[in-house]
Design a protein around this nucleic acid. Structure first.
Lengths: 170, 170
DNA sequence: GGGGGCATGTAAATCGTTACATGATTTT
DNA sequence: AAAATCATGTAACGATTTACATGCCCCC
């Protein structure tokens, strides 16, 4: 049920169309909650039906601009404060680790080494984002920086772990 | 498609029924790849249809014991070595962070503080597992220890991040 | 007038969760 | 004899991904 709240959250920055939101997702939330075009339009319809957002304007090419209303903002706040976040459950990189005895030790080490490299690469990706948002002061960027820092620490931990784990396999 | 490979991986330890596998999932993989009973029985049927596992014995109460065959083991190895792991995409704890401007700063700080507590609690859960597996020498435990260490480092990172982030909000 | 971007929508397939349904066997 | 455990399966619903389908508007 989080896509719904991601949409509500983005609409706090102002009214937007499905098309606008799709770009916003790609630009800001894609690292913690990606959304496809398909999903987005469906969710906007449902949110409007549920009375949490309102069509605030219609433009050319059937453009529908949606705005957050009071009910929507209340629901967003409720979700933030009262719904316990679900911890990420699935990690197929770690799932493979459980089964590394099924490949040669050298291949296992190589697998782990690759995970360090992937961590490094993703870290660079995040550093690119950090440069791009610079010191923007909008709400999404301000708090997004906290999420970004989480990602950077996470990738660093992944690299350190991979170095440690590669040693363990010897 | 990873449930399929989780099943293949568990069957490397020996033949097992759906019922056995469900317990194995709960005991070993539930932290990286949980599975429900429903899903498991369905996947076993599909794997048997696909010729990656074989019914190796039938027991009382309609018990069907499945065994990994050569095709299944080959597929498992292929998946480990050749399929790039997908990084975890969704994290609703971080999604909420993006929207913390919508609640009082004091509530935002409290939210972050809660995440440190959740990290601590999950860390204790993992330490419990570490004690329970002790120095077991089966493949799943040996490599599972690497995954466990990942989890412990991850929870530590989460706690450190939360302390840092709480400061940032001031 | 053509190309690129704007804009929305639907359909099909797969995966995952929850709940329902059933019944046999073993243990106390 | 009852309770616990073993054991499998189906149905309904919701989320996600990928692909398909359509067409308008603006700039060059």
């Amino acid at each position: 049920m989080s896509l719904r709240h991601a949409v509500l959250g983005l609409l706090t920055e102002g009214p937007a169309s499905g098309y606008d939101l799709l770009k916003l997702f790609d630009a800001s939330l894609s690292n913690v909650w990606p959304a496809t075009q398909s999903q987005l339009y469906g969710e906007l319809s449902k949110l409007a039906d549920a009375g949490l957002i309102t069509v605030s304007a219609e433009g050319p090419r059937g453009r529908k601009e949606y705005a957050l209303n009071d009910e929507g903002l209340a629901e967003l706040r409720r979700w933030i404060l009262e719904v316990e976040p679900a911890r990420p459950l699935r990690n197929d990189m770690l799932l493979r680790v459980f089964f590394l005895a099924q490949v040669d030790p050298e291949q296992a080490r190589s697998y782990i080494r690759d995970q360090a490299a992937i961590g490094r690469k993703y870290q660079e990706h995040l550093e690119g984002i950090r440069e791009r948002i610079g010191s923007d002061t909008d709400n999404l960027s301000t708090y997004g920086r906290l999420a970004l820092e989480w990602g950077l620490r996470f990738t660093r931990t992944q690299q350190e772990w991979a170095e440690w784990a590669e040693e363990q396999i010897r």
